[in-house]
């Protein structure tokens, strides 16, 4: 009896599937169960907000540089129609600096105030974002360098490791 019930259930499910298939061509609106993405991913899949925003950025040696406050996407023209088949936008930079405040409270920081770390310097994405370069070579760490040279460096003993 139980088996029969299961069988019935399977059958229903199949029908549901066929039904789904029939409606594949008339758009997604009103669909109840979304279909799985038919394209097999060709690389690591990330959700920008979930996997990147607010993550720590570490340099080649594991030294913290900054956090991911925002991301720059290239290839989106606001207000312009996207032609079918045009190449997808690409991620070009990690933004930091005043971006966090404007992200939370709205508005835009002037482009000149944005500190960008080119995405091509990223070597790995995991719990943190790893860069393939030293922090000292980046604009993002200039504040720290300035403070260490002009303030910390003037304190007696400030120019060497604690003994």
């Amino acid at each position: 009896m139980n088996d029969e019930h299961d069988h019935d259930h399977d059958h229903d499910h199949e029908h549901e599937h066929e039904h789904d298939h029939d409606h594949d061509h008339d758009g997604g609106a009103g669909r109840r169960m979304p279909r799985r993405d038919p394209r097999a991913p060709r690389g690591r899949v990330l959700d920008a907000h979930l996997h990147l925003l607010d993550r720590q950025v570490l340099d080649r040696e594991g030294v913290p540089v900054t956090t991911v406050d925002d991301l720059e996407l290239d290839g989106i023209e606001p207000g312009a129609r996207i032609e079918p088949g045009s190449p997808p936008p690409t991620l070009t930079a990690i933004l930091t600096g005043p971006q966090l405040l404007t992200r939370l409270f709205g508005g835009h920081a002037p482009a000149a105030r944005r500190i960008a770390i080119p995405w091509k310097l990223v070597s790995a994405v995991g719990t943190t974002v790893r860069l393939g370069v030293d922090a000292d070579s980046l604009d993002a760490s200039w504040v720290e360098r300035w403070v260490s040279r002009h303030l910390i460096g003037r304190i007696p003993g400030g120019r060497h490791d604690p003994e």
């Binding site: 959700d47 920008a48 907000h49 290839g75 991620l91 091509k120 393939g132």
Partner: peptide, 25 residues
């Protein structure tokens, strides 16, 4: 729009392949 889905699957670059937008949530 809740999130933007990315894929590290574009043209090969120096360290990682190019990261492209594949969809929106």
């Amino acid at each position: 729009i809740l999130d933007v889905r990315l894929e590290i699957s574009g043209a090969p670059a120096q360290l990682l392949a190019e990261t492209v937008v594949t969809g929106v949530l």
